[in-house]
Design a protein around this nucleic acid. Structure first.
Lengths: 135, 135
DNA sequence: TCATATAGGGATAAATTAGTCCCCTATTGC
DNA sequence: GCAATAGGGGACTAATTTATCCCTATATGA
């Protein structure tokens, strides 16, 4: 396992929430679990861009941080279910606020993000290509 | 400059906000600017753990994403001031919600974060050392 | 017998982010 | 001239996070 070389800051609330929420897929995992997609395979289907391995690791971290619980049913084939803990549930309104802000400003955000990407020279994709599926 | 090799997901609001808010110090930068610490040197004093270089880079990203503006006064020695844009201002309540959640659950979070760090084997620091300044 | 589904993990590589070092500009003050 | 102040940036390295590849186990169905 990877071993940290520097200690995280844990001074204020923002440090703390950052520590448990950073991770490319964590917020989505919490959200989908909240929506009732509790089994690993369901979550993987909802987040197809993430590698299985990575979801497992981030789920484990969420569990270690006590935002979700992991229940193993002793059946074959194996069955596992995640649920939000009480603490995890209190995070839902916050995540919801984040998502709403993003949705509200969707156009603007997509535009400035793509603008920045394109000006990075290599230009992975043009702003045009991004909208029309010309292939 | 570093050039991305994979495109970010920009499907939903959570993807979008993630794209503009990820970065170790960005949320704090927005927060402190909101509090009136507008000049680079002031921000650096408020966030001493961050390297100057890194703050500059993240400030530039926030500017590119139009969450802050950068005003240069043509004086010597140079003077620069950052301000939140209208869009940036709408993010303040969300950041505030994040911080409040972290503050509210401070004890629990610090405890589980440290527990996880310690169990990573190397044990950078003991839960004890963390609280008493025994040196 | 072989493929499928379910859940998971070790080793390793690639991508990304953060941090360090050193240098530049121009003025005021000693 | 030299130091301090204020704000930056290039080149490079280190830290961290994400992704890939491949392997385990068991029961069911074709």
């Amino acid at each position: 396992m990877y071993e940290r070389k520097t200690l995280p800051n844990l001074n204020c609330g923002l440090d703390l929430i950052g520590e448990v929420l950073y991770g490319k897929w964590k917020i989505r995992l919490l959200w989908f679990i909240h929506q009732g997609h509790k089994r690993p395979s369901q979550l993987q289907r909802r987040i197809p861009d993430a590698a299985r391995r990575v979801l497992n690791i981030q789920l484990k971290e969420l569990e270690d941080h006590e935002l979700i619980t992991r229940k193993i049913y002793p059946v074959v084939p194996p069955k596992v279910e995640y649920d939000l803990t009480e603490l995890g549930k209190t995070l839902i309104p916050v995540i919801s606020a984040l998502g709403n802000w993003g949705d509200t400003n969707e156009e603007h955000l997509r535009s400035v993000i793509l603008k920045r990407l394109n000006s990075e020279s290599g230009s992975l994709i043009s702003e045009h290509e991004a909208e029309s599926d010309s292939r």
